[in-house]
Amino acid sequence: MKIDDIRWNEQARAKILDDADRVLREAVLDIARTGGGITSDEAFRQLTARLKDRFIDWEPGPDLRRFADAIANGELPAASEPTG
């Protein structure tokens, strides 16, 4: 066996990504629903605080800024809207 053969199979990889997306989605929507009038910088800080200990080698990237901007601009669904 080669070192490159030691990796998650495709089903496990898909589940890992789905789980990571769910954690991100829940954090973004929760902050959007509870942070009325929040600034983009504050939303970014809250997202970083919620997510940094949930992922290995966490580094906030441009996607997190995009979601923080969407929170600040009220571009996310209201609490009563479906999230799917």
Rank of each mutant, 00 (worst) to 15 (best):
V28C: 08
E10Y: 02
S40Y: 08
I38W: 06
L24F: 14
L51S: 10
Q11H: 11
D69F: 03
A43V: 02
N9E: 08
R45T: 15
A14D: 01
D41R: 05
E42T: 15
R33Q: 15
G61M: 03
I56Q: 00
F55M: 00
R66A: 01
R22L: 10
I6D: 05
D4F: 00
Q11E: 13
R66D: 06
V28A: 05
V23W: 01
A27P: 10
D19E: 11
F67E: 08
A78Q: 03
E42I: 13
R66E: 02
D5F: 12
F67I: 02
A68I: 12
F44V: 13
Q46G: 14
R65D: 08
M1G: 01
L47C: 03
D4C: 02
Q46S: 14
N73P: 02
I16F: 02
I6F: 09
I56V: 15
G84L: 00
R65N: 13
T39F: 08
E75D: 13
D19S: 14
I6K: 06
D30H: 12
T39V: 13
G35H: 12
T34M: 04
T48Y: 14
A43C: 10
R50M: 14
E81W: 07
E59G: 07
R45P: 13
F44T: 10
D5V: 09
R13M: 07
R22P: 01
D53K: 00
M1L: 00
I6H: 09
D53L: 00
S40I: 06
L47H: 08
A79N: 04
R7D: 04
I3M: 05
Q11A: 14
D19P: 12
I6M: 01
I31W: 06
D69W: 01
G74R: 00
I71T: 12
D21Q: 13
L17W: 12
D4A: 01
Q11P: 12
L76Q: 11
D57C: 05
G84D: 10
D53W: 03
A27T: 15
T83C: 02
P62S: 05
A70W: 05
A79Y: 05
E59R: 10
Q46K: 15
T83A: 06
I56W: 01
D63R: 06
A49W: 09
G37S: 09
T48P: 11
K52L: 02
A27V: 09
D57K: 01
L24E: 15
V23A: 04
L64S: 09
R7Q: 14
A49K: 12
F44W: 14
L17N: 15
S40H: 07
K52A: 09
D63Y: 09
D18T: 14
D19W: 07
A43Y: 08
R33K: 02
S80M: 01
I6S: 03
W8E: 12
E75T: 10
A20M: 07
A78C: 01
D18W: 11
A79C: 05
A70P: 11
L29D: 11
P60Y: 02
E26F: 05
V23I: 08
D4E: 01
T39P: 13
D53S: 03
R7P: 07
I16Y: 02
D21S: 14
L24C: 10
R54V: 01
F55Q: 00
D69N: 05
K52G: 00
F44G: 07
I6V: 09
E81V: 05
G61Q: 06
Q46M: 15
I31A: 08
